[in-house]
Structures are given as structure tokens and as C-alpha cells.
């Protein structure tokens, strides 16, 4: 049963952060600085979903959760969706399309430079996510393009770390999780090669 409905449930789960945000907006619950809150919230979910996307393959290998891995693309696309909203909010609300100030940020604020590169790296992944595109460009090239998620994830973690003042626990926690998944993938890669 779960398998049959899994896709539906996953859609619901993935939309939940956005619905929560809209609920908070309706309740005037975004606190003293609603713009900052929304941007951090959207970026936070983008990063969380990016890491969850990377967790799916290890879970498939360890627990045989094929139902989840069938939906990996959905997680990745929702991560991209939240990161896009994060950037739209920054450009359109926080900076209110002040391109001069935005460019100033991009070139002078390292954490914004790093974050933007991570986003740019994710665009080809999103564009080549359909079955049609996989066929069109071929599996090998597709895999190579999609390895970019690892670089994007490293940069996204770095972006979060640099954004916070001082050395804070939360960004380190995310970076630690990423390292864990990455080491796991390397371990399995080596094991498969030796078999």
C-alpha cells in the first residue's frame, strides 16, 4: 500500500514546508524580520532536501528502499524549487531588484558568490531531469552532469557556514551529514570495483 501511494505522500511531504510558510504568513508568524525569516527558511529547506536527495541512494543500498529511490528525482527537483524561491526572494523582496546592490553582493560577499555558484551548478541538473532528456543526451553524459550535485552540495554547505556569524553548530551538522553520505558512496564505489 505504502508503495502504491508513496509518490502521492512524497508530493505532500515536499510541499509541506511551503504550506507551513504560507500558514505562518497568514498568522503573521514570521517574527520581527519576515523577509530574513523567509529567505533563511526557503534556503534551509533547499539545503535539507539537497542532502536528503543524496541520502536516498545509500538508503536504497542499505535498506533496499526502492520505492524511495524511484522518487529521487522528485526530491532533487523540490530542492531546486526551494532554492529557486530562496533566490527569487533575495532578488525580488530583500533587494527589491536593485541590481547594483545585488552585483555588489555577488562580487564582494563571498558567501553569496559561493551560494550563487551552487545554484548555477544545479540548473543543468534540473533541465536534464526528464526521461526524454536522459535519452537525448545518453546515460553516460547524464551521470556525469548529475555528479555536479556533489559540488553543489559542498558549496551549499559552505554558503550556509559562511553566512552564520562565527563557527556555529547547525552548518557544521549539515556539512558532517554530507561528508557521511559522501564517504558512504566512496566506500561502495570502491567495493563494487573490487568485486
Amino acid at each position: 500500500m505504502i508503495k502504491a501511494y508513496s509518490t502521492l505522500i512524497i508530493w505532500g511531504v515536499l510541499f509541506f514546508p511551503l504550506l507551513s510558510l504560507l500558514f505562518l504568513v497568514s498568522q503573521d508568524g514570521l517574527g520581527a524580520n519576515p523577509i530574513e525569516f523567509s529567505i533563511h527558511y526557503l534556503g534551509g529547506w533547499g539545503l535539507k532536501l539537497l542532502l536528503i536527495t543524496l541520502l536516498i541512494s545509500p538508503l536504497r543500498i542499505l535498506l533496499n528502499w526502492n520505492w524511495l529511490s524511484r522518487n529521487r528525482r522528485l526530491f532533487g527537483l523540490f530542492s531546486f524549487f526551494y532554492i529557486s524561491l530562496h533566490i527569487i526572494f533575495y532578488v525580488g523582496i530583500d533587494q527589491f531588484f536593485n541590481w547594483h546592490d545585488i552585483l555588489d553582493d555577488v562580487f564582494k560577499r563571498m558567501y553569496i558568490t559561493v551560494g550563487l555558484i551552487a545554484f548555477l551548478l544545479l540548473i543543468p541538473l534540473a533541465l536534464t531531469s526528464t526521461k526524454k532528456m536522459i535519452k537525448k543526451i545518453g546515460g553516460k553524459i547524464w551521470i556525469r552532469i548529475h555528479k555536479g550535485i556533489y559540488i553543489a552540495a559542498v558549496l551549499a554547505c559552505l554558503h550556509f557556514f559562511m553566512m552564520r556569524k562565527g563557527v556555529q553548530f547547525e552548518p557544521l551538522f549539515y556539512a558532517g551529514l554530507f561528508s557521511l553520505f559522501f564517504l558512504f558512496r566512496i566506500y561502495f564505489y570502491i567495493r563494487r570495483k573490487n568485486q
Partner: peptide, 19 residues
């Protein structure tokens, strides 16, 4: 004098939309 993380040219007054 800008900070590595924040341009100090503008600020957002809490409770207001525009910087």
C-alpha cells in the same frame, strides 16, 4: 566601510519593507 558579509551602506529598519 563594508563588512565581508554585509554591505553597510543600507539597513532594514525592523517593521519596514524597504531598506
Amino acid at each position: 566601510v563594508s563588512h565581508p558579509r554585509w554591505s553597510q551602506k543600507k539597513e532594514r529598519r525592523i517593521g519596514e519593507f524597504f531598506k
